[in-house]
């Protein structure tokens, strides 16, 4: 139920961080986070409070988790079809980007 938005810490002053949420900046309180954070760190914000520092390597971990899940579930014709589609779509997107 809880709206959580990730953002990147710009600066920290005491228990308050200025966080860049990909377009707007907003102060976020650090009272309840369990690790020290500094500029450049990603944090998860809920109702004006940072509730989690998101280590950059964990973002990569999530992405590789998806890859792993897909690999585990894949390995047959259908999944290969989908991979083919993915590649085709990416190619199309690249062409589109090139045109633009």
């Amino acid at each position: 139920m809880c709206l959580g938005v990730p953002g990147k810490v710009v600066s920290v002053e005491g228990q308050v961080a200025l966080v860049d949420f990909f377009g707007v900046r907003r102060e976020t309180r650090l009272d309840v986070i369990d690790e020290p954070v500094g500029p450049g760190d990603y944090v998860l914000n809920h109702v004006g409070f940072a509730i989690r520092k998101i280590p950059a390597e964990d973002i990569r971990e999530t992405l590789s988790l998806y890859e792993l899940l897909l690999r585990e579930a894949g390995g047959d014709m259908m999944a290969d079809d989908v991979r083919g589609e993915i590649e085709a779509a990416r190619g199309a997107a690249r062409q589109e980007a090139a045109r633009a």
Partner: peptide, 13 residues
Amino acid sequence: VSPAVRSAAEILG
């Protein structure tokens, strides 16, 4: 949608 509006809208639900 401008990035700022997109982000603010997301933060505010």
